[in-house]
Computed example of a mutant assay.
Amino acid sequence: MNGAAQESQEVQESTTVELAPGVVIPLIGLGTWPMTGGEAADAVARAITNGYRHIDTAENYGNEEAVGEGIRRSGVPRGDLFLTTKFNRQWHGKAGVREAFGAATRRLGTGYLDLFLIHWPNPAEGRFVEAAEGLTRLAEEGLIRCWGVSNFKPAHLRELQAAGLESPINQVQIDPEHQQLDQLAFHRGHGIVTAAYSPLGRNGGFLSAPAVTGPAEAYGKTPAQVVLRWQVQSGRVAIPKSADDRRQRENLDVFGFALTEAEMAGIDALDTGAPPRLDSDEFGH
């Protein structure tokens, strides 16, 4: 391994990133959409057994009860896990967020949340700033350890900032073909952690690109592991979904090697400039 790769490995061997003082989030989490019912509970329980300590769900996924069951079934103490969920637009507003918290924790069977996110900004309703204010109150009371947002464009984040609110994390669609470079630049410029959902894409076409298969062969890894390594080596949290034991373990096993600068640049070059699948100025729930 050359010097650049060794230096990169040393910098990125941490498996977590800090969101707030004393609050660290694992860089690899288990995505749970669109799993529901027994499938979701089983996948979560096995993922935790396989080493996951970060589980991501949402009200709109319709699986919070199953996720909570999977956590309990795993036998791992709640305090050893980082649990994220998200709430829908009907709860936007200061009072609504508290109701959303109560409903989410009842479904999950937990007394607190590690991270509570506004799932979509729904800017036409004009209430996401109030929702963020409600979240800060929950954090001040210790009901949630940290708050954040999902699918917020820079314009939405600026509205929060104008109200004196700084979201420490934004969960958005990022994969090699949908890198949202302006979005990532805004996050870097304002100290916002990026969490990538659908980090391996929807159809996985780029997994056969030479920029991915070349490093996979060189390091004895799968193309998916190379892409997840690219995500975390770029400083992003990645939340791949998998119900398969082998893939779950592989998705976690991305910290024992490092991509060179040239390999990172090769994957960067796969960006098509295409926008995310859904436009958060128009879509939301």
Rank of each mutant, 00 (worst) to 15 (best):
V172E: 10
Q161N: 05
A124W: 02
A195P: 13
L108G: 00
I174A: 04
A103M: 07
T105E: 10
L108P: 01
Q171Y: 07
A185P: 01
T194E: 01
P154E: 13
I169A: 03
N151A: 11
F128C: 08
T110A: 08
T194L: 02
A132D: 08
I192D: 04
I144R: 05
H119N: 11
I144N: 01
L113A: 02
Q179G: 06
G191H: 13
I144C: 06
E140N: 05
G134F: 14
Q180R: 11
L160R: 00
Q161F: 01
G96D: 07
F186M: 02
A103Q: 07
L138H: 12
V149G: 00
D182Y: 01
N122H: 09
V193G: 05
R127Y: 08
T110W: 01
R137W: 08
Q180V: 06
H187F: 00
I144L: 05
E125V: 03
F101K: 05
G96A: 09
E125D: 06
A132V: 05
S198I: 14
S150W: 08
T110L: 11
E99W: 05
F128D: 09
T136L: 15
V193K: 02
G164R: 01
L165R: 12
I118E: 05
F116E: 04
S198H: 12
G191D: 14
Q180N: 07
A162H: 12
Q180K: 05
V97W: 07
W147R: 02
L184H: 03
G142Y: 11
F116L: 13
A139F: 06
R137C: 07
Y112M: 11
G164E: 00
G205K: 10
G204N: 02
Q173A: 12
I169F: 03
F186R: 00
Y197G: 04
I144Y: 06
I144E: 06
T136H: 12
G191I: 12
L184M: 07
G109N: 03
W120M: 04
A163W: 09
A103V: 12
G189E: 09
S198K: 09
V193P: 01
L184R: 12
